[in-house]
Simulated assay, not measured.
Amino acid sequence: MGHEQTVAALLKRFGRTYADEAGITLRDTPAPLYRLLVLTTLSSVRISADLAVAAARELSAAGLRTPKAMAASRWQARVDALGRAHYVRYDESTATALGRGADLLLDRWHGDLRRLRDEADGDPARIADLLREFPRIGPVGAGIFCREAQAVWPSLRPSFDERTLRAAADLGLPDTPSTLAALTPPDDLARLAAALTRASLSHTRPGELLAA
């Protein structure tokens, strides 16, 4: 299987972003970008991606879709929403992190992550550094946010973290961001990053892609 065939098979089988799975229609506007930040916070602990997505959906259903709503919510209400998604091991600490993160976003960037991007002059490394100022978000979390946000922030492209690059190598694909990005249109890079992550989590082998 050639590289282009492998990428096409990956996108067909696994090419749904985690934002999309969490019900986030990602746009370069404050509310969906904040919901992606919430999903990133939820994903930044040792917990399954499915549970993180379910928790993001539950928080959204509870009306916690903006930093103002999150900051104004009761801590117990956040814990309860996480519990409904069975996100129970880290529910209390994550509820605290979400509240503090919302306060930081409101105080420093007026609730708008585009201001964070502008403060960084669109530089991917600086964006990642600023994201790491949010509670719970470390290098892995910053990578999660950037690989999803590249769908609407072109300055982040190509954004592939260590896990996606290892997955690419395991599937016989180029394992540097620029060579990997050359295999698909720019608008599909976020989907490719998600597909590689999903392939890694499911331990998919190259031959299994064509079989699917």
Rank of each mutant, 00 (worst) to 15 (best):
T25C: 05
T40K: 04
R13I: 11
A9Y: 05
L104Q: 01
G63E: 13
D50G: 04
A125D: 15
A52K: 03
P67Y: 12
R157L: 09
R191V: 10
L210Y: 02
D107N: 14
H3G: 12
I144F: 00
T176A: 03
L116I: 08
P154W: 03
L33D: 07
L210F: 05
A193M: 01
L131I: 10
G99L: 10
E92T: 14
S178P: 00
L106G: 06
T40E: 07
L59G: 02
G143A: 01
A61H: 09
A149E: 12
H3Y: 09
R57M: 07
V45E: 00
L130C: 05
T164D: 00
T204S: 04
R13K: 02
L171A: 04
R132T: 15
L165N: 01
Y90A: 06
P158W: 08
L36D: 12
S178Y: 02
L192P: 10
L209S: 08
H86N: 11
A62E: 10
L36M: 11
A194L: 07
S200Q: 11
K12H: 14
S43E: 13
A102L: 06
D20H: 15
S48T: 15
Y34Q: 07
T94F: 10
Y34L: 11
L116Y: 07
A167T: 01
A77H: 10
A72G: 14
S93W: 07
G172M: 02
R132W: 02
D161N: 01
A72I: 02
A52G: 12
G99V: 02
R108F: 04
D123K: 13
R84Q: 14
G207E: 14
R117W: 14
P30W: 12
P158C: 04
A190V: 12
A199Y: 02
G143N: 06
